[in-house]
Every structure is written in C-alpha cells, then in structure tokens.
Write a protein that binds this DNA or RNA. Structure first.
Length: 276
DNA sequence: CGATGCCCCTGGTGGC
DNA sequence: TGCCACCAGGGGCATC
C-alpha cells in the first residue's frame, strides 16, 4: 500500500529519529523478511556496529546508508517502521528490531510479512536485484518525455499495466496510477503504444503533480498506513477515483466505476476517461 | 514479449 | 454467535 509519497513521508520522518544512530544489535523474528544475504546470522553480523548516516529513496524502496553497507527496504503492502525505547513492549507483527547503542530501537512491523530487506556493500546496490530492475524515479532527471514516450511506444500492454511496471517508472502503485490517469483524462485500458506524444506528456505531468501534491500532504491514509511517527497522511481527501466506487465523479457527476484490469482493482470515470 | 497463475501472508468479510 | 472459505494485493517467478 505505501507508494512513493508514503515512502517519501516515512523517509523524512524516520530521518529525524535514526540519523547518526549506531546499530548495536539486530534481532530477526521472521527470517523470511531478510532476502540478502541468505543467511540471517550473516545479515545481523554485517549490519551490527554500523551507523545510519542517511536515508534515501528510489521508487518505493528505502535505502539506509550505513558506513560500509546499504540496507534496502521494501514495505510492500503493510510494512511500517517506528522508533521506541527498548523497554517498550513489542507490538504484534514486529519482525526485525535494530537496537541502537543509545537504548532506542528501530522496529520493522509487517502484518502480512511481505516486506523485504537486502544488504549490499556500498556502491554495489544498483548492480543487483531489486534496484537494478528499477526504472527512473518520477522526480529524477532521467524521467524525460523522450524516455517515457519511447518506452510506451514499444509495448503492447494497456497503460494501467505499464504505469504499475516499476521497470518503466518507479514509485507508482494502484492508487496513484488510477489518480494520474483520471487527471490525464486517459482510460486505463488504452494501449500504451497508441498514446500520442501529447497524451504521454500529460500523463507524465499529471503523475509528477499528483505525487508531489501527495508528498505535500504526507501521503494517503488508507486503512493502516501511518508514517514513522504514527501520523496520518491527508491526501485521501484529494482522491478523485481511488476508493470512490459509485460516488459521483467530481468533474462530471457520473458514478465512478470499479473494474478489474490485470488483476488489479481499477477506478475510472468512464465518462471523463476516454479510450477513443 | 505478454498474459496468467502461484506464492508469500493475515485480517476482514460474507455466507451459512 | 461461531466457523470457515475466500479475497486483497506488490512483486518475484515459472509457465505457456
């Protein structure tokens, strides 16, 4: 559920609490979260003793910059981070605990256990999965109109599926794809290769505007998402179509329709968004 | 290349 | 009220 704006919000919040903290020990309560290295003991050994100097983000990934390593975290559906004194009781579904030398702990909580953690040597992280599979972040300079148009031209898939593909552009998920396509007046089932350069430009612009606005609002709070402080995002008030099934379109008044595209719930105003 | 389905998981929902 | 089958959903992976 956390997409780019939620991950960006989590990053900003977390930075206030963990920058310059040194990891004394790591406790892994659900080893399947750890994807690299294979061996959980190895993971703990590598990370222990290192200091968190910065947190970066690419797409929906968090990149914790340590002394010698980079810790890469994907929250998938329900992953959350929070910081607590070590005495504080552990919440249900806490799976990884980074204990700092000052008595505080960074805790990773994930009801569905879908989240992942990878550790790489500094500088090596972009040579391996998962980061080497990623397209540009929408806020990156490489996300140019030429790049985007070329990518869309050479695929036979529908635009909704392409926007969800993290190797094309990294960070959009179900919510922001639906919102972007509504704002761009494009039907999600339209073939990507059939879009004009003008339409591609509008999609690109609306994606960036939507994401930027959502970051400004601290993300969207749907169900359980809260940032590292437990604060809620407010962007859900500005959603046009996501979760608005049967509600009147804020533009034309016709009811928003929910359909299934590529196995994903998809929200669309069939009056405003034309396939043509 | 692309569509489909399975898998990873648990809480919420709907049927009975 | 209780039980249970079923579903959601990001992304990796195998299959066709």
């Amino acid at each position: 559920m956390p997409e780019l704006p939620e991950v960006e919000t989590i990053k900003k919040t977390l930075k206030r609490f963990v920058i310059n903290k040194t990891i004394a020990d790591v406790s892994v309560l659900w080893p399947n979260i750890i994807k690299r290295p294979d061996d959980t003991e190895q993971f703990k050994h590598i990370v222990s003793g290192q200091t968190i100097h910065d947190i970066k983000r690419k797409g929906k990934f968090l990149l914790f910059q340590l002394d010698e390593s980079v810790l890469i975290s994907h929250l998938r559906m329900e992953g959350k981070y929070s910081v607590h004194p070590y005495q504080e009781p552990m919440k249900k579904h806490t799976h990884v605990v980074f204990s700092f030398t000052d008595g505080e702990e960074l805790r990773y909580n994930d009801v569905r256990k879908f989240g992942t953690l990878h550790v790489f040597n500094k500088g090596d992280e972009f040579n391996h999965k998962p980061l080497n599979q990623l397209g540009p972040d929408p806020f990156d300079e490489e996300f140019t109109l030429d790049y985007f148009y070329k990518k869309l031209k050479k695929t036979e898939r529908v635009i909704k599926a392409v926007l969800l593909d993290q190797s094309i552009v990294a960070g959009l998920g179900n919510i922001y794809v639906d919102e972007t396509l509504f704002r761009a007046n494009i039907h999600p089932l339209k073939k990507a290769s059939r879009l004009t350069k003008r339409e591609v430009k509008v999609i690109q612009e609306q994606a960036i505007i939507t994401l930027r606005d959502a970051v400004g609002q601290g993300g969207t709070t749907i169900r359980s998402y809260v940032n590292g402080q437990g604060e809620m995002g407010m962007f859900q008030q500005e959603l046009f179509v996501y979760g608005q099934e049967n509600q009147p379109c804020k533009n034309c008044g016709k009811p928003i329709v929910k359909m299934k595209i590529g196995g994903r719930g998809t929200h669309v105003c069939i009056s405003c968004q034309k396939i043509k």
